Amino acid sequence: MTGSILPLALGFAFLCVSLAILLNLFRLWRGPLSTDRILTVDTLTINAIALIVLFGIAQATASYFEAVMLLAMVGFIGTVAYCKFLLRGDIVE
């Protein structure tokens, strides 16, 4: 009985994450400030990570989780670089 609920839960999760991505894209397009856009790109990265994890669960393979770890590191470094550029006008001191 519990095996039949997993596809329903994955479908609901895919729907929720897809809706979150669409709302983030709207905020990216509409955001009046660059700080709004930086936070939106960071949130889009997190949503992409969630989407890849869900796809890995749906495919029942662990190879997607390595890609998730790389995307998380690159996303964090990108957000820090954007913020540093916004504050100081230069990334490398």
Rank of each mutant, 00 (worst) to 15 (best):
T43C: 13
I91D: 01
R27T: 03
A9D: 10
A9L: 15
Y82D: 02
T40F: 06
F65M: 03
L86G: 07
L87G: 05
C16A: 15
R37A: 04
I49N: 09
F55L: 11
D36T: 14
L19H: 04
L39D: 14
L39A: 14
T45Q: 07
S34Q: 09
A50H: 13
T45M: 11
L10V: 13
R27K: 11
E66Q: 07
W29D: 05
Y82R: 02
D90K: 08
A20M: 11
A72R: 01
I91E: 01
I49P: 03
L33E: 15
F76G: 04
A9I: 15
T45I: 08
I49G: 09
L33D: 15
C83L: 14
M1T: 08
G31C: 08
T40M: 06
S63R: 04
A72S: 10
I5Y: 14
N24T: 00
T43F: 01
R30Y: 06
R27D: 01
E66V: 12
F26S: 13
G78E: 02
L28G: 02
P32V: 01
L22H: 10
R27N: 05
S34A: 03
T43R: 12
Y64K: 00
L10H: 10
I52D: 05
L23F: 13
F76W: 04
V17L: 07
L10K: 04
I77F: 09
G11K: 00
G31D: 12
L39T: 12
A72P: 03
I5H: 10
P7A: 09
K84V: 11
A48I: 15
W29Y: 08
M69N: 09
V80I: 14
V74P: 00
F76Q: 03
L15Q: 08
V92L: 12
A62D: 00
V41F: 02
T35Q: 14
N47T: 13
A50Y: 14
S4V: 08
T2Y: 15
A67E: 06
P7F: 08
L86P: 13
K84M: 12
F26V: 10
L28W: 01
C83D: 11
T79V: 07
F26C: 04
M1V: 07
I38M: 01
A62R: 00
E93D: 14
P7V: 12
A58Y: 06
E93L: 03
D42R: 07
L39V: 10
L51G: 09
F26K: 15
R37E: 11
Y64L: 06
L71D: 02
V17W: 09
S34N: 05
V53N: 09
F85D: 09
I46R: 08
T35R: 14
W29L: 08
A20E: 10
E93Q: 10
I57S: 03
F12Y: 11
N47F: 07
A50V: 15
I49T: 12
N24R: 01
M73K: 07
Q59N: 03
G56V: 09
L86F: 11
F55K: 00
A81E: 05
L44W: 05
A9T: 14
L28C: 01
G89N: 11
I38D: 03
I38Q: 04
A67L: 10
L25I: 12
